[in-house]
Design a protein around this nucleic acid. Sequence first.
DNA 1: AGCCCAATTACGGTTTGCCGTAATAAAAAG
DNA 2: CTTTTTATTACGGCAAACCGTAATTGGGCT
Lengths: 221, 221
Amino acid sequence: MIDKVIIAEDQEFANLSVQKTMEDLKVKHYDYAFYCDDALAKIQLAQQKGEPYDLLITDLSFEDDGTAQKINDGVDLIRAVRAVQPAILILILSGQHRPADIHHLFENNEVDAYVRKARHDVQELKSAMHALSKGQRYYPRSLAQLIKRSNTYEFTDFDITIIRLLNQGYQQNEIPAYLKQHDIKPSSLSSIEKRLNQIREELGFSNNQQLMVFCNNAGLL
Amino acid sequence: MIDKVIIAEDQEFANLSVQKTMEDLKVKHYDYAFYCDDALAKIQLAQQKGEPYDLLITDLSFEDDGTAQKINDGVDLIRAVRAVQPAILILILSGQHRPADIHHLFENNEVDAYVRKARHDVQELKSAMHALSKGQRYYPRSLAQLIKRSNTYEFTDFDITIIRLLNQGYQQNEIPAYLKQHDIKPSSLSSIEKRLNQIREELGFSNNQQLMVFCNNAGLL
DNA sequence: AGCCCAATTACGGTTTGCCGTAATAAAAAG
DNA sequence: CTTTTTATTACGGCAAACCGTAATTGGGCT
C-alpha cells in the first residue's frame, strides 16, 4: 500500500490539487515541498527516522526564483533520492512533453510512473496511484505513441554535445577545437558533419534549424 | 466587484485550484470549463440572460484531445469572447512563457491581467484579482523584465513567414518562389537574407539555429 | 607480429548561406 | 512633374556547410 507520499512541485496550483487528490485517495500521510532541496531533506529525515516515504511525486522542471538551491531539476532530484532510498516509488508529474527524458528514465528503471499535466490529469494521477499500489508501473499509451512517432531516435551524448554547442552559437568548424580541448573522442569536423547528416536523415529534417527546434522541444537543450 | 467568474483551463489540476482560490476569495459565483467552446457558450448564455460574467480566467494553450472544437487556443477564445461581451475582464493564466503573445495582448488592451503558473501562483492570482477589483490591470514585473530583456524586437508578419518556412524545411533560395506565389511583397532572396541578418544582429545571435529556437520558445512557430 | 574490421579523419568538389555594393523601382517630398 | 528619399532587387565574392570518397588509425583476434 502507498501510505506515505511526498510531493515536490513548485507550481502552487498543481501542488494543492495533488494534495487534494491524496486526500480523495485516503492516503494516510502526505507532505509537500516547493523546492527540490526541501523534498530531499524530508526524504532523508524520514528515512533516518525509520518512517520512509513510499512514493515521491515530482515535477521535472523547477523554476529558479532567487532562493539558491543545490538541486534545481526533477531529474537531478530523482537521482539524489534514489541514492538515499533506492526502493522508493517515483512518479513524474510534468507539464511539458519531454519524451526523451522520460523515456530514458523509464528505460533505466529510474521512475515508476508518469502523469502529464493536461486534460484529465486528476483521473490519470488516480489511475497511476492505483497501478503503483498494485506493484505495476504506469506509462500512459499517449506517451508510448509519442515516443514511437517522434523520437525513436536515440541521441548519444556526443550528439547532444554538438547540438548544444551549435545552439550556443558555435559554428561547425569551431567545434573540433572545443572537443579536443575537452577530450571528447570523435573530434574531427568530418565526424561532426557525418553525425549531423545522419541525425537529420533519421528524423526526416532537411536543415539544422528544424533539428534544433526539435531538440529544444524534446528538452535536450 | 468581481462576483461572477468563468474559468477556462484544460488542466484539471490547475482548474481545481483556481476554483478553490475563488472560494477562498469569497467570489459569489464561479463556473469552469475544460474546453474553449464550453467557456464561450457559457459566456454567451449568461450574457443573454442578463447575468454576464465579470471575469474570464483562461489558459493560453489548450490541448487537442479527440473532441473536435471550434476554438482551440486561448488567444482565439479571448477574441471571440471580446466580440460577445467587450467589457468583460480577462485574466490570462499560462504555464509557458509566451511573452510575445502576452505583451501583444496587453498592448492592444485585449487582456487585463496575467498570472504565470509557477511558484507562488496562488498568491499571484489573489493579487491579480485584488487589482482587478480595484479597476487596475495586473502585469507582473517579472514579465516586464522579461520582455525588456529578451524581446524588445518586434517581429513583422514578413519575419514570421520567413521563419516558419525555414522551420518547415525550406531553404532560403526556395523562399522567393513561395513568396511570389502568395503575393507577399518583398520576395527577393536578397530581402530575405537582409532581414534575417538584421534580426540576428538585433537579438545577438550568430546563426539561424539559435533564432529558430528563440522563436519556438516565444511561441511564434 | 600480422591481419581484419570498424571507427575516425582528411580531403576535394559542390551547394548553400552570408554580406557588401550597386542598380533599379517605388514612394514621398518639393 | 521633377527631385529626393527609401525600399527592393540584382549581382559577385567569400565563408560555411554539405557530401562522397579515400586514407589513416586503433583495437581485437589468430
